[in-house]
Amino acid sequence: MPPRPPGSRRDHRIDALRGVALLMMFVDHIPQNVLNRFTLRNVGFADAAEIFVLLAGYASWLAYGRNFERVGLRAGVGRVWRRCLRLYVFQAVMVVVTTATIRYWRAFWPVPVDFLEPELAHGLSSFWRVLFLDALPSNLNILPLYMVLLGVFPLIYLMMRISLWLTLALSASLWLLINLDPSINFPNWLDPDGWYFDPLAWQFLFTLGACAAVVAGRHDGSLPRRGWLRWVCGLYLAVSALEAFPWQQWGLPDLRPFAITAPDKSVLAPLRLLDVLAIFYLVQSSHGVRGAAEGRIGRVMALFGRHSLEVFSAGTVIDLYARLIFTSFGSGWMLQIAVNVIGFTILWELATVLDRARIRQKQRQAAPPAAAEGRGNPAPAGSVMERAR
């Protein structure tokens, strides 16, 4: 592991949980991957996407919300929009790489139509729509959601300054409206139903994350621990696991107590929302999890989580090639092992390189004050005479 900067007191739970979510998303986006039988979606209504968005809201408050008070609203908004521009650049690169790869691959091996929408697979006359976010391919729809949510974060921040409860009430009302009428959505030229992740619904999860960061900040980074609430969350997750577990896929008798239909992901159905909130509360209110996040495995997961944009984008591209390989050459055990080992190794090396660069940058930023302090001391006479010569 790269050495941590001296004096670092960062709570690694958020980074570690985000790292786990990123790795699960990497596995889940390869349908033929055997490992996706062991991810969160198999033991609950929610999956890694809900965790990612909730933690995005939490991290946005830590990175930008508190920054508004130091640099002012105008400078803070500029920083948020620069981050949105960076997200857009990564999205555009992934779109270009995906489209070019599939169109080139088709010249040698057949590619199922669901790898890329026919409008893009058979021509590029509408490619501009993708770059303008008027059309979202099905496998490249998470970063646009994040861009929209982060872009409106300054407004969320101003509302939170007035009242957390008012902010949550307005956000929840909009989420409830979308669940009652799912037709209210952003337009998507490739899908008449609109964006797969409806931002008008998913903003509630993002806002909940930001408000949770404020509450946790008042309790040394943890959510208030309530024994009864932890029992309720645990019981709900147990029922959720029984309902969501793929019993038939494993050749086991169906033990679902209610046989509930899978809740709608597009509008963030209530069962999915409660699932991810229960997970988050148990993690962020647990001192044991905080200690585990400081351990070796926790720090490895946090390494991925600290560089979520780069790890997610690289994982998305690797997912594309893994799906193409499995589709063209089969998904036998040797290819399963090779694809997963190579994919995780690439992500690990990328996160390690980025973290070392982050540490070096922090060290350079910490150096100027010390250097300035040294310049403020009287220089020895000999050195003055040497410079004079």
Rank of each mutant, 00 (worst) to 15 (best):
Y146M: 10
E310A: 14
P263K: 06
G291E: 14
Q363R: 14
V300R: 05
R106S: 14
M147V: 01
D114L: 12
L124E: 09
F115C: 05
V384K: 15
I102G: 11
Y58H: 14
S328E: 08
S286L: 05
Q363P: 08
A388E: 06
I325K: 06
D134C: 12
H219K: 00
M25P: 05
R103W: 04
R37M: 11
R37T: 07
L87P: 08
S125P: 01
R74D: 13
L166A: 14
V283S: 02
S183F: 05
A292Y: 12
I337R: 13
S308A: 15
G209I: 11
L164D: 14
T167M: 01
N377K: 13
H122F: 11
S266M: 10
F245Y: 15
Y146W: 12
F329E: 01
I162R: 15
E373N: 07
S138R: 13
M25L: 15
I297V: 15
P144C: 02
V215H: 03
F304I: 05
L170W: 09
A238K: 02
F204G: 00
F197R: 00
G295A: 09
S171Q: 10
Y88P: 01
G376P: 00
R103V: 03
D254T: 08
M24W: 06
I142P: 04
M301I: 00
T327C: 07
R375G: 06
L347S: 04
S171H: 05
H307Y: 11
P187H: 04
T316M: 13
H29Y: 11
F153H: 02
I178C: 01
M147P: 02
R103D: 04
T101V: 03
L176W: 12
D193Y: 00
E69W: 06
I14M: 06
T98F: 02
V89T: 10
N340A: 10
